[in-house]
Every structure is written in C-alpha cells, then in structure tokens.
Design a protein around this nucleic acid. Structure first.
Ligand code: FES
Ligand code: FES
Lengths: 132, 132
DNA sequence: AACAAATGATACTATTATGGTATCATTAAC
DNA sequence: GTTAATGATACCATAATAGTATCATTTGTT
C-alpha cells in the first residue's frame, strides 16, 4: 500500500539535510540530531547510499558522509529502487505456482498502466526539486 | 510497495468467478476449486465482502455467496478500502511522534498528487470492466 | 607510535504484519 | 433431526521490518 518504506523515507530526509550543507561532511551523530532517526539504523542506510554511489563516505576522525558529485539530481525513483528493489505495483499472487492467466489477465494490464504513470511521476521528484 | 494485497487480489478473483455465474449461489467449496485459494482463508474474505454488502450470503444446505444487486459496478478502489483500510500512499513516518514538518513538507505535496491520480484510475477499474 | 573518532561489515534480536487454520455457534434445506 | 452450509472469533506460523550490537578498518591528532 505505501509507496515509500521507512528506509527510503529516512534516506531521503538524510540526503536532503546533507544536500543543504553543500559539500560539508556530516557524521552519523550529526545527522541523527538533524533527522531524529535512530543512530545505528541511519548508519546502515547511509552505508547503502554510499555503496549505491549517492553519498561518499569518509572514515576516521572528522569523517562522515557527503553528497557525491551531481547526485542532487537523484530521483525518488532511484531511492526506491535502492531500498525496495525493483519497482512493481502488480506482483501476481500466483507467481510462485505459475499463474494460470498470464497474458490474458485483464487486471495486470490495467495495473501496468497505473504503474507507468506512477514511475513517471516518481522520476520527476529529485532531491534538488525538494530543496526549493 | 504493492498496491493490492493478497486479500484484495483473492477477493477480486472470487468476485469475478461469482459474477460470471450470474445470480447463481456458489459455496466456498466450489469457489476454492475455481480460484485455488485455501478454503478457510477464502471464507473469511467472502464474509467480509458480505458484511461490506458486495456479496450476499445464504446459510444452510445449498448455501453460499452471490453478487449483490448492482455490485458488478464495484470498483477496485472499493475493494482496496474494504481490505486495506483507507487509501494512503504517503503516510508520514513521523506521524506517531508528531511530524515536525507537517504543512511545509514538500514531499507530501508531491506524493499527494500521485495519489490522486492513482485513486482516479483505481476507480475506473470495475468488476464489470474486468469481465469483458 | 598511540589513541580516538569515525565508517565498513555483519550478525543478532524484537516487533509487527501477514497468511492461514481451527472451532463452535447459527441457519436453512430436506 | 440431520446435514450442509455460513457467522464469528480465536489461534498459530511465518516472514518482513525495524532496530541493536559488535568487531574490524581507516584516518586525523597528538
Ligand atoms: S492472475 Fe497472474 S497476472 Fe493476473
Ligand atoms: S515529514 Fe511529516 S509529512 Fe513529510
């Protein structure tokens, strides 16, 4: 039902805070203060964003995370993919046992259409556009 | 992430089968055969549909469920509401602890817009339109 | 060189949501 | 009165989510 999970939401918040401090490296501790997200949990999220190339991490004293070059243009859609895997609104519940109606299923077609629209809109929401 | 839960999906399938047998009363046993949904689970679902007025149940020997008058026009949106509660794509994850940014949150506005579109489309998908 | 402050990696735990089952009561046909 | 169905509800099992803990690694500071 919900488009955005907690991970994605927290990630988005953290990225926005980081993006506002253009170029500055923020530690998990600082970000916990800013976002109210539990420290270790936030850390895990930031690590994933680092792996995904959205953030760049710096270890050691004074370390933390900053936004990678050009990544203010990261789209909400990208974050969803990072944290929630492939984007699919219409997983057929027969998929495991081989759906008897694949191809003919009229519902699938309708949901697919909705999905396309949603994806398009999620791609228009960028970090940059949220900062304004 | 997924728009439709298992309940809703199963409900939809069952209703479609019932709608095809115009007026005929189908028992859970018969519907289990037609839909491959586990009996007792399907039963619970059908009971909810009965309470919601989409189906009409008949107890006793030869009993079962049939479609209520005019309910071929039930919309997918209605089913989602019945099984998944109010439709909200954008639950703020701070809702419990009182969101600090309500009102100003730019994300909320964007998701609300998406939500409106999705709802509109879900209201266009009726049982009748799926039978064709 | 030693220490401290940070992240990397990963394993663990707790909580909640989901999917499904079981049981007993009630109703209606024969 | 017996049987075949649903009504209502409580229960259980599994999986997903949210969050914690720990140890290793890197880096700045003294
Ligand atoms: S029933 Fe499998 S795709 Fe619709
Ligand atoms: S942060 Fe609460 S509505 Fe967006």
């Amino acid at each position: 039902m919900k488009l955005i999970t907690r991970d994605t939401d927290y990630a988005l918040r953290a990225i926005c805070k980081i993006a506002k401090e253009k170029g500055k490296v923020l530690s998990v501790k600082e970000l916990t203060g800013l976002t109210k997200v539990p420290g270790p949990y936030l850390r895990k999220i930031l690590q994933r964003l680092n792996k995904a190339g959205v953030l760049i991490s710096h270890k050691g004293t004074g370390g933390g995370f900053k936004l990678a070059r050009g990544k203010v243009n990261t789209r909400l859609f990208d974050l969803i993919v990072i944290f929630q895997g492939h984007f699919k609104l219409n997983e057929c519940f027969f998929k495991k046992e081989k759906c008897p109606d694949t191809g003919t299923c009229p519902l699938k077609k309708r949901i697919d259409k909705i999905e396309k629209n949603v994806i398009k809109e999620l791609k228009e929401i960028t970090i940059a556009s949220l900062l304004r």
